[in-house]
Design a protein around this nucleic acid. Structure first.
Lengths: 256, 256
DNA sequence: CCATCTATGTCGAGC
DNA sequence: GCTCGACGTAGATGG
């Protein structure tokens, strides 16, 4: 069987099982009454209570209570687990370096300990990401606006690579920033940096406060900024308006 | 006993145990071979493999593999768990609304199922946080610089509340931004927004590129910006220099 | 409920 | 190794 499990073990029994499981590289879960101490980037102490300790063969350690998605205490992958019996307690300690951090779980009672050898099945495929949004726009540029022509993705600039670079129906350069979900003002700032960088590179006017457009008399092209996202916060909308940028409401995947 | 646990249960046995545990409000862990499907803000599929499913009475659900601190799939607190036998599979589904999200775990084999009633012990005390840093500075203002006098914490401004507001030995207003660890350029931008907001409010010059100081002839006070953090990245240092701000190297807790 | 900010964020990519 | 930006970020706090 791939799973070993003991119910209400003595500390010494639990220690044997833990050390065997460490040796085998098992995924381990321990129910029990414990205190938890953490010392590292910060420091914390947690009084006695019933909790679930998960120990992974890659060094990750998680202490979960009955609430929250987040563990109440943890140690990242790359740590080293050790266990020992200290007096009336079973001590499980997970340490790592860089930064130096230690997580110590002291069990007064171990109610249940299980360990499972884990095999395969790490092929997670996530849909609806920013890449899906880019694909969607490259396949159907008119979703951005009629006449839009993508020219380049991840186009380099002094402000970093812009998501999509293209031209509009009038031939103006367009910087498109993609966000897979509702965005705040930070995304507008990011878009503004790309637009400014491209404007400087092309020797163009960055903005057009008069609203007279850049396709007129002067030769310098007017660089437009378009933010593609499902929606924007109020403050982001303000900043878009300030900068003269456009917002296109678009989901990373088609509705239904 | 506060813990129930079954080894290699039939799907029907596992279903009974799950429903009892839901009823009791237990913290549940399930080892088994399963596929995972998520549909909501994004969507994902995960092929068959051995994993650990954790179900919490507050509605949180976590699917953990043998690697990583993060669950490979999850559902936040506030979701509702349901279980059913569907053909040759035990299906555990966790759903929530706003946004509509569904996590479905289909077990072909359940190796081990445990459930524990959890009581008390949620009194986590965390040290070394940003609040500790503020406390430290208010108690010993000279750590910022000789003659510094804190006047207000969380002082409101049009750019939001600033961590600490005070005056320096020369009487210049000082905005102090606190960070508990090494910071990047974003923190400088935040500080700059506060300094500008305060400058506009006081009708003062925001910056002093000439380095002539603001304690001289003109009446308008010169608003200084000080970033207190253990250290800063190179790019952050550049931006600090550009803006004429100061950096004070300080840990949230005294060394040793 | 929405908007903003912090985090022992975690995680992955680029340098 | 460090830095930077994204995340189904989570979680807390204030309007």
């Amino acid at each position: 069987m791939t799973v070993t499990s003991v119910h209400d073990p003595s500390h010494r029994e639990a220690l044997w099982e833990l050390e065997d499981a460490f040796e085998r590289g098992d995924l381990i879960s321990v129910f029990g009454r414990c205190t938890v101490a953490y010392e590292g980037r910060a420091a914390s102490d947690l009084g006695a209570g019933d909790r679930l300790l998960v120990l992974k063969p890659d060094g990750a350690a998680l202490v979960h209570t009955d609430e929250g998605r987040q563990p109440v205490n943890w140690q990242p992958p790359g740590s080293e687990h050790r266990a020992a019996v200290r007096g009336r307690q079973l001590r499980v300690r997970s340490t790592r370096t860089n930064p130096d951090e230690t997580l110590t779980v002291r069990f007064s009672d171990v109610h249940q300990l299980s360990a499972m050898a884990v095999t395969g099945g790490r092929d997670l495929t996530l849909h609806g990401s920013e890449e899906d949004l880019r694909t969607r726009i490259l396949e159907r540029p008119e979703l951005v606006e009629p006449g839009f022509e993508p020219r380049e993705t991840e186009r380099p600039s002094s402000a970093g690579p812009m998501d999509v670079f293209g031209v509009d129906a009038a031939g103006n350069p367009v910087v498109v920033e993609l966000k897979r979900r509702r965005v705040g003002p930070d995304a507008v700032g990011q878009l503004a940096r790309y637009v400014r960088a491209l404007g400087e590179e092309l020797g163009a006017a960055e903005a057009d406060p008069d609203g007279t457009g850049g396709d007129g008399d002067d030769d310098a092209p007017f660089v437009r900024g378009v933010l593609v996202a499902p929606s924007v916060t109020d403050r982001a909308a303000e900043r878009l308006a300030d900068r003269g940028f456009d917002h296109v409401a678009l989901e990373p995947t088609p509705e239904e």
